[in-house]
Design a protein around this nucleic acid. Sequence first.
DNA 1: TTAATCCCTATCAAATTTCTAGGTATTATC
DNA 2: GATAATACCTAGAAATTTGATAGGGATTAA
Lengths: 132, 132
Amino acid sequence: MKLSSKGRYGLKAMCELAKHYGEGALSLPYIAGETFLSEKYLEQLLSVLKKDDLIDATRGASGGYFLKRPPEEISVGEILRSLENGLEIVDCLSGDCKNKSTCQTYGVWAKLYGAINKCLDGISLKELVEGE
Amino acid sequence: MKLSSKGRYGLKAMCELAKHYGEGALSLPYIAGETFLSEKYLEQLLSVLKKDDLIDATRGASGGYFLKRPPEEISVGEILRSLENGLEIVDCLSGDCKNKSTCQTYGVWAKLYGAINKCLDGISLKELVEGE
DNA sequence: TTAATCCCTATCAAATTTCTAGGTATTATC
DNA sequence: GATAATACCTAGAAATTTGATAGGGATTAA
């Protein structure tokens, strides 16, 4: 059970944006430089985060990306659910599992899913960039 | 972030063993039949669980597999750590990450790792087969 | 001796993830 | 108005991981 690179790298990119919150937009080349990611790869991560309304962007010369809300109002849970396309650790949590009622292990996944979300929703982006 | 089939199926096999705890060994073909898994695949899962001392086996005719401890003394955490080869959701939790001190996101993974283990260690195999 | 069982390890196939690449649309600035 | 800097979109190559199959060996109750 591993978090994907998308999640790990995307969270770092979000930290970078948080660090400069309020200073206007950061360009893709700049963020790529700070996070040591290729521009093309980072671009895809940012597009996911934008689709999920966590960041926004302005186009054209001197454009770039920026957080849509202040860092203290964005949780790590939101960010990872966006990048990982949900944190359901087993498929029966997403789709409608018809054996839910008789399945001996369903309860485990439900509890674990709850614990993961509770943990991650309790950490704000601000905490990360301010070192707790 | 998905749990592997190994984890899901292996836990089901453990439930089967728990259901018959104290009744002697269950053969591979029997467990395979109950869990709807191929014998050859299930065999690999059981070999992992055996290596990690959660189950034991007797060979030869009328041999089979059985829990090494009573179901109430085996946690789901132990089982999944065995099958998943650890529950470290990122590699820096296992190996020695040299950037631990400066990494902005390390704290997140550490907290999450703790939450996952705490949750799963709090559920015993007995609870699963007795329906809470 | 036989048949039923666990044990070991190699390998194939499929799926997923990671990353690269090329081109398009937009816009501030000169 | 031209230019250069930017974000946006989509296809797909490459690498890795996962899931599953297969064959043969060792052990032991009957």
